[in-house]
Amino acid sequence: MSTKIIARKDFDDARRSRMILAIVSIFVLFASLLVAAPELFGDSTTDVSTAEALSLTVIPAETLVPIVSLIVGYMAIVGERQSGSIKMLLGFPHSRRDIVAGKLIGRTAVVGLGIVVGFTVAVLLGAVLYGSFPARDFAALLGVTLYLALVFVGFAVGVSAATSSRGTAMAIVVGMFIIFNAFWNLLTALLLYVVEGSNAGEPTWYEFLVSLSPMAAYESAARTVMDVEILPLFSGPTSEAAVSGDPFFLQDWFGFVILAVWMFTPLAFGYWRFSRADLG
């Protein structure tokens, strides 16, 4: 009950700030442009299905969804601590756990609304342009993208709960995003070079390390649920065709597990810190 009350309060606050409007607009533009891209820029002789057009959104989404989710989530709790409104919240019969859970739900709803509207507009546009409505692929893509949003909002809310200043929270989410969005493949490749030398193959530990990035995990997860092929960006060429002979932790479905770890670890740590914090 408390969780729901806090989540609704948070959602209403975001609505008033026009943040929701901005997020919905971003996702509508983003998804529509990508789905329309084959029609606008493609070779008109090849047939494109709506599902294929839709799959074009996966790669950009793994950058956009984390950015939006981190921005929406990182101030969730530390912001209320800095403004002092946390004392008002906790003056009512709400526990600190209620606050973390309510914030997670409220802020995920904010990003989620943007994703649902954006992808729905895009799939309808696709249906008009390409004449097919891939209900299953659409539902799968929507589901896995919402999951990605939940994971990144969870990460950010965890960080927000763990820290006592806005600056620290921001530094952590920005740092995390930069490392995993821009440098993870480079860092792992460097490590491979250092450990194995220049002409090594790609040992299992290296592939696993690469797959640990939440962006790579999302690609793998999306591949498991969508029928169309998704070009890998982060997961690296070798894991593209993850075969059933690979160890379980290199198979595509394991992406869901990796994402879950990315959400629960910071949330648990953040809650642990927050539950012990002096909110002076």
Binding site: K9, D13, R16, G84, S85, I86, K87, M88, G91
Partner: peptide, 15 residues
């Protein structure tokens, strides 16, 4: 069972 008026202002500007 307690009603609290916290120190300083602690409201939500937009609500």
């Amino acid at each position: 069972r307690v009603g609290v008026l916290p120190e300083n202002r602690s409201l939500y500007d937009r609500l």
